[in-house]
């Protein structure tokens, strides 16, 4: 346990020393909320959203953005680099299993996501009066399901990427379409039906819908939860089978 805590702390320190990824994970989602929230019309209830405000939606989307950043952008690049540079190979000769390092890396990403999410919610609540999730347990559940499903995809990318650069590139290529379906550019509520149907089956689209359910007071819907669990199981198993230590 002491070793795991030390590894996680070390990973967190290293994460903070990469200013670009630290910024995009910890501050950018909040910055997005602040920028969109400063547009007056986004703070007004609109008919299109059934009386909701744009900013209310974007708080949920910013949380999904955080999760996408850690799971699809940071984790695969770091782990693929560790393999490429022989960090995992060196660890394999010590009493600490490289699996522990993998766990520490995932834990670090989870902690970063929680911190960033807390900041997004706090700024949303204090500055723009966005209500906290009415169904808090449901929010936590939706958050964890989305984190697990996306991290499984990130691990899979880390498993198949031949180098750190490739891991980074694959992550970036995945990031934009996945975030599109999460509603970063067009919220799901105003998507055409067909796009909304597709979004329901993408990991971030499902995550956004589950989080949005909890924000508005219900438990995550069954379809989104099932989709996220399916990503976790499918990509998680594939990652475990394909992961190479050196």
């Amino acid at each position: 346990m002491r070793v795991f805590a030390k590894l996680t702390l070390t990973e967190f320190r290293l994460f903070l020393r990469e200013p670009v990824s630290a910024f995009f994970v910890l501050l950018f989602p909040t910055l997005l909320v602040v920028i969109l929230g400063s547009i007056p019309s986004f703070r007004e209830p609109t008919e299109d959203l059934g009386g909701g405000r744009v900013i209310d939606l974007y708080v949920g989307i910013a949380v999904v953005l955080t999760l996408a950043m850690v799971a699809i952008q940071v984790a695969p690049a770091v782990l693929a680099t560790y393999r490429e540079r022989g960090v995992l190979r060196r660890l394999a000769t010590t009493p600490v299993s490289p699996l522990k390092m993998l766990g520490a890396q995932l834990a670090m990403n989870g902690i970063a996501a929680v911190l960033s999410t807390a900041l997004v919610l706090a700024v949303g609540r204090i500055v723009f009066d966005v209500a906290l999730a009415e169904q808090f347990a449901g929010f936590v559940l939706a958050f964890l399901l989305t984190l697990a499903g996306t991290l499984a995809i990130g691990l899979f990318v880390a498993a198949v990427a031949p180098s750190g650069k490739a891991g980074n590139a694959i992550g970036t290529v995945l990031f934009f379409p996945l975030m599109f379906f999460a509603g970063l550019w067009t919220p799901r509520e105003v998507m055409p039906d067909i796009l909304r149907r597709i979004a329901d089956f993408t990991p971030l689209g499902a995550g956004e819908r589950a989080l949005s359910d909890a924000m508005t007071g219900s438990w995550p819907n069954l379809l989104s939860a099932t989709v996220l669990l399916a990503y976790l199981a499918g990509f998680g198993l594939a990652a475990v089978r394909l992961f190479r230590w050196s």
Partner: peptide, 19 residues
């Protein structure tokens, strides 16, 4: 795995995180 405590290894092509 108990040998890992008793055998110290320095291998080629093994590194550490840059920072």
């Amino acid at each position: 795995r108990s040998l890992r405590y008793e055998v110290g290894v320095q291998l080629q092509e093994s590194g550490l995180p840059d920072r």
